[in-house]
Design a protein around this nucleic acid. Structure first.
Lengths: 231, 231
DNA sequence: AGAAAACAAGAGCACTGCTCACATTTCTGT
DNA sequence: ACAGAAATGTGAGCAGTGCTCTTGTTTTCT
């Protein structure tokens, strides 16, 4: 009688859930986003309807995988960023960017789920917004540190459009964003989008036959982005 | 007896092909990328197998739509860019960027097909690379003009990684890219990726509840990108 | 007018997500 | 320890999918 409300059964259930997600991600990597519940059930030696004891629907399985993937990506970026000396702002930012690219290259199917074309009927449930924001939080912390250490300039002489300034101030009011100036946040978000543009172009094959050494390419583009950010 | 090799029949066939593509794009916009051949056939009052007289498979229908979309996007950007005074390099670049965003906002489903997660088994046929490069050609022409008019600087003092320089020189050897310097092309491609990062974030809903006035947001980010480009 | 090509229709195959009634196993309260 | 409850597994079945094939009709070409 373990401490948990239920014992062996709960453990078996958790194991089955893990197995389903694992096999589903394997299929996702090979067959793409049109995941077949029946085929993962087959591979696990269970009948297709049994899967519905663990996941309400195919979408809810996808959602679970998306949450896991967001958390893995968040974990990877947090660890990479934490490994850099605090005063090395540029290093922290570049470690963050590299961690995002590395994880994405290692899990292209999951990257497609997270940052590619949204599935039509599917709208991201609220459970995903927490994990999804982890890399953003990491980057914002770097910006705040940069301001505190007087390495980043607030960007005061930027003429922001009024609605954009208002939007940015709304974001800054959110927990974790305090202290960032609107102009710097705007730059950060722009660089953020640029980073994902780079990764998407690489993973989605937009640069095939044009760029061959993606590592060097990314390093160079990241150097430019780092400069744009002011680091 | 018209001039064409076949008369009424060929016209009817072309019309049917157009109809199928039109209805398919409608369904694409509402139901997403998992397009159902049978449902478009139903809507057109024909039996599903009849569609195969016009398109070899579902993928080939998607390919035809993709080519059309690339051409529309290319057409839109070319026209927008051509409408700007030749000496106004910044205006030409910004018109190009705005045309891309405008078309993408007007056709989000098609944008997802072109620039979102690639369909798993599906690999872009050669017929698509021509239309797909039209916006790139537009932008490259702006860069070359900028160099000729001494508005853009070649970016000589950039230290490019050797493999990246080699990749860039390979691109510059392609028709339409002559005269662009590697460093400037690198910047252009980076800004290019950033632009699609911005559009993707907007269309894929990454900024929901954060940015409300997307027009102002895009204008400001484009201003930053324009500056990064040197215009 | 006759031959050939194009087109349309419908049945059928293997697959999908999902539901439901039913059987079996495991846990829990007394 | 035992009965009832809850969780889990099973297989049939429904409506939908992409695609193929056979059959019949229509249009075009010679």
């Amino acid at each position: 009688m373990p401490d948990r409300p239920t014992g062996a059964r709960a453990r078996a259930r958790a194991q089955t859930i893990q197995d389903i997600k694992r096999v589903a991600r394997l299929h996702l990597a090979s067959d793409g986003a049109d995941l077949s519940l029946r085929s993962v059930a087959r591979e696990l030696g269970m009948v297709s309807s049994a899967v519905y004891r663990y996941f309400e629907s195919r979408d809810s399985l996808l959602t679970a995988i998306i949450i896991d993937a967001y958390d893995e990506l968040g974990e990877a970026t947090e660890q990479a960023e934490a490994a850099v000396r605090r005063s090395d702002l540029r290093g922290r930012w570049q470690a963050t960017a590299h961690a995002i690219r590395d994880w994405s290259r290692a899990h292209p199917a999951e990257y497609g789920l997270l940052y590619g074309t949204p599935v039509p009927g599917y709208s991201a449930p609220h459970d995903t917004i927490g994990p999804a924001s982890r890399p953003v939080v990491v980057m914002t912390a770097i910006l705040r540190d940069g301001l505190e250490r007087r390495i980043l300039v607030p960007g005061q002489h930027e003429r922001l459009p009024a609605p954009t300034r208002s939007d940015l101030e709304g974001i800054i009011a959110l927990p974790g964003f305090e202290g960032v100036t609107p102009a710097l946040l705007a730059r950060g978000m722009g660089v953020w989008a640029a980073l994902f543009g780079l990764v998407s172009f690489e993973l989605f094959g937009r640069l095939t036959n044009a760029v061959h050494d993606y590592d060097a390419w990314f390093d160079y583009q990241l150097r430019l982005l780092t400069r744009d950010l002011g680091l």
